[in-house]
Computed example of a mutant assay.
Amino acid sequence: MESVTNLIVGYALAVATQIVVFPWFGLHPSVGQNLAIGALFSAMSLLRSYALRRLFENWRRS
C-alpha cells in the first residue's frame, strides 16, 4: 500500500511540477503530453527504487 501511494503521489507531484515549471523554460506541452511525461518519469522512478532495493538487499546478504 505504501509503494502504491508513493507512486500515485509522486506521479501527481511530477505532473503538477511540469505544468508549472516547463513554461519557465519555453516548453508548452499539452495536458496529455504532461501526463505521458509524468508516467515515464514515474516508471523510471519505480525501476530505480526496485534496482536499488535489490542492490542493497544483495549487499546485506554478503
Rank of each mutant, 00 (worst) to 15 (best):
G10P: 14
A51I: 15
I8C: 14
H28E: 03
E57P: 03
R60H: 11
R54Y: 09
A39C: 05
I37R: 02
F41H: 03
Y50A: 15
F22Q: 04
P23M: 01
S45A: 15
G26A: 05
M1F: 14
L52I: 09
Q33N: 12
V4Y: 14
R61G: 05
A51D: 12
H28K: 10
E2S: 03
N6P: 06
S45C: 13
N6M: 13
F22C: 02
A14F: 08
L47A: 14
M1I: 11
A16V: 12
Q18Y: 04
S3Q: 13
R61V: 07
S30K: 03
L46V: 11
G32H: 07
T5W: 10
V20M: 10
I37Q: 01
A14Q: 13
L55F: 11
R54N: 10
L35M: 06
S45I: 10
V15T: 04
A16T: 14
R61I: 10
G32S: 09
R54W: 08
F56S: 06
R54D: 09
R48F: 06
A51P: 06
T5C: 08
V4P: 09
S30T: 04
A16N: 10
R60C: 01
T5N: 08
S30A: 06
N34L: 07
L46D: 03
T17I: 14
L47R: 09
G32Y: 08
N58M: 04
A43L: 14
M1D: 08
F41I: 07
T5G: 10
S62I: 13
W24E: 05
A36T: 10
G38T: 00
F25R: 05
Y11C: 02
A16Q: 05
T5E: 11
V15G: 04
S42F: 09
L13S: 08
M44L: 15
L13R: 02
L35T: 04
E57V: 07
S30D: 04
E2T: 11
L47W: 08
N58G: 13
T5Y: 10
V20N: 02
N34D: 00
H28P: 03
M1N: 08
A51C: 12
R53S: 15
A36I: 05
W59P: 02
L40F: 06
G26R: 11
